[in-house]
Structures are given as structure tokens and as C-alpha cells.
Design a protein around this nucleic acid. Sequence first.
DNA 1: GTCTATACCCCGATAGAC
DNA 2: GTCTATCGGGGTATAGAC
Lengths: 245, 245
Amino acid sequence: MTSIRGARERARIELTAAIKDEARRQLAAEGAAKLSLRAVARELGMASSAIYRYYPSRDELLTALIVDAYDAIGEAAESALAPAVAPTPSAPAAPSAPSTTRDLIACWVDVCRATRAWALAHPHEYALIYGSPVPGYSAPQTTTGPAARVAGALISLVREAHRTKGLAVPVLPAALRAEAERLAADVAPDLPPAVGIALATVWAQLFGLISFEVFGQFNRVVEERDAFFAHAAAGLAREVGLTGP
Amino acid sequence: MTSIRGARERARIELTAAIKDEARRQLAAEGAAKLSLRAVARELGMASSAIYRYYPSRDELLTALIVDAYDAIGEAAESALAPAVAPTPSAPAAPSAPSTTRDLIACWVDVCRATRAWALAHPHEYALIYGSPVPGYSAPQTTTGPAARVAGALISLVREAHRTKGLAVPVLPAALRAEAERLAADVAPDLPPAVGIALATVWAQLFGLISFEVFGQFNRVVEERDAFFAHAAAGLAREVGLTGP
DNA sequence: GTCTATACCCCGATAGAC
DNA sequence: GTCTATCGGGGTATAGAC
């Protein structure tokens, strides 16, 4: 009995995955706005009505794809920071870890590079999460956690730099003091408030660089994209306060 | 006779404008991917077939909207730089114009602010040009000119700074020397090559900041957006080499 | 949980009358 | 230049049999 229940559950899980795979294929072909449950079902050889047992509406499927994409790009970013920082903030690395400042800047660039590499390899899923909002769709709260993972990776690097005294705190105009306090309390209470502002800034700038490349704005403008990006990412590290050796 | 031809021409121009207006309304409601000639015609009270006399296909209408959007955001950017720099590069301002370096940084921030203000006021048209590419649509070459206007405004400011010795030329890694030469030859042969790389970088970063705000990525993260953006834009000015007083 | 059938909507594009 | 009519597709979502 448990085996039957297990088999059924397994079948359901596999079909759910197959639906998402096919949906991703359609995302690439037609874009998120035209993602259609019918077409997914057709391609999978099911009746259009059968798919509603798995996703009760088009928006639920879209949400699943968005969460998957945020998780995937977040995981790409996190895996690039493994050498320099403990993967889970809840299990702080032994403070004996000998990470030097030079390591941290290189690691910052690696995290940026890994994020960019995922985006270039999955342009349509990237567009789903960092491109134009899908008209008529509003992402539920469940997406905010996964959405924060790339930023979390960047923050953990800055935190590590702060711990090892490798962080130059940026200056801040008076008009942003209150905002900085609020932001720091939300995302990194252990860091100087000015760092939160700098992080939000370079966070948006990083995705500006990636989006311009993925969306084609650099076509016939920037050609040596790898070197260009690495240079820009190092600039962002400096801007956020990571200091070189 | 000329008056009849004139009247006909005027009617055609007015209807063309009405079609674009309605299409922009639909852009806001449904997104570019679902822009439909039929729906535009319906809303205008015409038969769906009549609209083909004005735009022979959906893509032609889309192209018209894209060109209009690039022109509008470009004009917004250019009008903010009027005080510091001659509007048309072909008519160089009298070199007596007493623009100081301080003026140029303030003007840079104003250009960024004007660009952002247009984007926030026209989010759907902004998404059309700086968001995800429209699936199945490929922009023709005619869009590249208007697309370069915002960047052109930024370049003209940097050129003015260079002319008045207010530009610090950024350092450049060896891996980017060739790319810098090529890029500079294309967009600003009169400026040091390293400046072209810096310009491309801050250009993408500027739109990263704007896109995050327009597309909602700053929701519940950055609240004091005006001050935050002004601070970031000033940072970009520094990054590109504009030096303060 | 899957199927067929159905109601009711949408689209791009063209033909041919007026 | 505008109309009606039409071709040939597409979609969401539900009802009810198996």
C-alpha cells in the first residue's frame, strides 16, 4: 500500500517536473506572456483539462517557474562563494578560515561571473525574473525568499570583509542616513548602515550589466564581453567598499 | 486641390497618431507580446482590416512604438543637458560658455534624473525598450539611431568635461586595451579610449538602477528612491571620470 | 486522474464589395 | 479607404463520462 502510494506520488512528481520543463521550453519560444497551459498539455500528449490537476491556473505555473529561476540563479551565485564564506549563515565557518582581502575581491568577481553565466545560459528564465513584469501577473510573497539569494551571497561576502577588517565604509549624504538605518536593520544589522545603501546600489548595477548583455543592448557596442564584465564587477567590489591588497 | 490633399494627409496623420495612442494604452494593459491590431481597431471603432492601411503588420506598429519611446526618453535626457552643453554636436557651443566642473556633475545627475523620471512616468513604454525582448520580434536597424540618444547625452557631457580638463581618465586592464580602442573609434574618437569603456559600464549601470525601480525590484527594499537615485547617479559620474570641484 | 465535448472568447491576415 | 465575411488558427476553463 505504501508502495502504491509511493508510486503514485512519484508519478505525480515526475509529471509536475515534466510540465515545468515543457513550460520552460515554451517560455523560450513564446515568452512568459504567452505561456499557455493548453500548449503545454498538447506537447505532453495530455488533454488540456488534465493539466489543471497539477496547476490550477496559468499563474500558479508561472509562479513555480519564477521560484525555480530565482533558486537556480541564487544557487549559481552561492556556489561561487563557497571557497571564501560558509554556505549557510546559520553555521558560521570556523573563524580560523584564512580568507584574505584579495580572496574576497576575487570571490566577489566570481559570484558576479557565476550569476552572469547562469543568465546567459538561461536568457528566457532570466527575463522572467529580471525583465519586464508579466502583464496581469503579480508575484505572491513566496517568491521573495528565493529572490533574495543572489543579494544574500553578495552580502555574505561584504560581511566577511567587515569581519576581517577589509571593508572601507563608504560616505553617505545626510539625506540618506535614515534610509540607511532602516535598510541595514532589514538586511544586515551587523554591518555599518552606509554599506546597505552601497549594496543596494551595486546590486542593481550588477543586474544592469547582465541585463544589457542578455537583452542585446550591448550588440555592436561591447564585444569583449567577458573581460568587460570582469572589469566592471571588480569596479562594483570597490564601490561597495571591498579594498584591494 | 492642394487643400483636399492636405486634408487627406492631415486625416491620415491624425489616425496614425490615434492608432499609436491606442496601442500604447494596450501596451500598458496587456504588454507588448499581446499587442493586437484587432483590438486597436476595435477600440477605435474601425474594422480590423482597415488598420492594415496604416500599419501593414503588427511588427511595424511595434517598431513605430519603439522608435517613439527611444526618441521620447532620449529627448528627456537631452533637454536636461541643455544648460551645460550645445544641444546639437554639429553646432558646437561657443567655447566661451563658462561651464565649470561642478556644473557638469550636477548636469550629469540631472540627465540621469530626467531619464529616470521619463521611465517612471512611462513604465510600459520603458519596458518595451529596456525590458525583455519581445518574443518573435526583431528590431530593425532604424531603431538604433533613436536608441543611442540617452547615451549620446551622457557622452556629450563627458566630452565637455574633457574639453575643460575636468575629466580623470580611468585606468584600464591590459585585456581591454584593444576593445577600448575599437569602442572609442565607434562612439567618441575625440576621447581617451579608456573613457569609452567607463561610459559603456555606467550606461548599463544607470539603466540597471532605473529598471530595478520601474520593475519593482526595489519594493520593500529601497524606499527613499529620489535621494537614493541621486546618490547613485553622482557615483556614476565619479566612476566615469567627472571630477568634483 | 484522464478523457471528450463544449461554451465562449481571442488573434493575424486576406478577398472582394462599395 | 473602409466595410463584411471568411479562413485557419489560438486560448481559458468547466461539465460529465469512465
